[in-house]
Design a protein around this nucleic acid. Structure first.
Lengths: 210, 210
DNA sequence: GTCTATATAGGGATAGAC
DNA sequence: GTCTATCCCTATATAGAC
């Protein structure tokens, strides 16, 4: 029952894995207490290292949050690339969203972090100008706001995302008692039901025709 | 195009309406910048009053957030009371959730505040022991976790809430360009589609039977 | 009901030794 | 790669005048 799947191998400057351990602790604390109410002192303390040591691994507090955000990016990147090839094809969206369900259930804590700290995450997005990262975000949001896509489709896709991201997290972990596989099946059914009208409509006319 | 519907009349100690003006400004800033990144100085400045003046109207920063949270409570109280009478009746949930759609669209900023500052809100919930307020929260969460309700129903209801609360807010206001009435219709359709299987099932067996 | 001034704490961040 | 010690700043909150 590992907390998270790892994404990039330690970047040659960190053989001891301290960087990842920092991120794991930060994920716990940021998720439980909130990003702003968690101090670097607290993170360091829980790791048994000093505050200053954190600054060797990260440029600052925001950098830690950013690194966790990148974890989420990496989870979704594969599915997103497929989606980006045909962003107006409802079945592409369906595949993407079903993928998200899987990731969400496998990495609930990481998703909960994002759900509970949107304000903080948006703040670092405003500052961050890393080309790749910004580009990814912009492209995704462009898909959600595409004026060529009819309102109904936009609402259904957004609702789907809201259901996946938010539904599980409302007021703490409401489904911590539930077996993961049963939960997955139930979620997929809901996703399917939300998108069904889109799939039906797309039999002949494209998503863009509305 | 007023920002918010008012709920309780000025409580006799505030004829000038400053308290409400403070809340309006705080709502703006908390929503845009995040609760933690907004200082009392900032709020006071924007109102043209001093920081200390805020303390006349509110016990502290958390108290301001709490007051905004109460605004949300008051919006939903009526619908919740109806729901509480028959919490296992799918059509009661349907009515409740449709009501929420209306409130959400009429008071988007207030909902966005909650969506973007969950960590901060949960923190004050842990401290607050006001009888009425705590009771309300607990009862609502009890409904969402009721073990007598089959998993499918719980997931659908949670997804519905997630769709309503989260879907509109993902990455800023994605639907700011859309006419409110068309948006309402589209949202209601989605809500209906998510809950449809529950309504069908409840024709004969109760929601509790699974 | 609003002000000025101040107390106090805690946070992020840096310097430099080991 | 990790430590100790320290700087500096901003924030909440209070005291007491008007």
């Amino acid at each position: 029952m590992a907390t998270t799947a790892r994404e990039d191998p330690p970047p040659a400057s960190d053989r001891s894995g301290t960087r990842e351990r920092i991120l794991d602790v930060a994920l716990d604390l940021f998720t439980e207490q909130g990003y702003d109410k968690t101090s670097l002192r607290e993170i360091a303390q829980q790791l048994g290292i000093s505050k200053a040591a954190l600054y060797y691994h990260f440029a600052g507090k925001e950098d830690i949050l950013m690194a966790l955000h990148v974890r989420l990016h990496n989870l979704g990147r594969g599915a997103f690339d497929s989606l980006a090839e045909s962003p107006r094809d409802p079945s592409a969206w369906s595949a993407f969203l079903e993928d998200m369900v899987g990731h969400m259930l496998a990495d609930r804590k990481l998703f909960a972090l994002h759900e509970r700290n949107r304000a903080a995450l948006e703040a670092i997005h405003r500052k961050d100008h890393d080309a790749e990262h910004t580009d990814f975000e912009e492209r995704f949001r462009a898909l959600l706001r595409d004026p060529e896509v009819p309102l109904d489709a936009r609402v259904r896709i957004s609702s789907c995302l809201g259901a996946i991201l938010g539904g599980m997290v409302l007021g703490g972990d409401n489904f911590s008692d539930v077996e993961s596989d049963a939960l997955r099946r139930a979620m997929l059914e809901v996703v399917h039901d939300i998108l069904a009208p889109l799939m039906a409509a797309s039999a002949s006319p494209a998503l863009g025709a509305g």
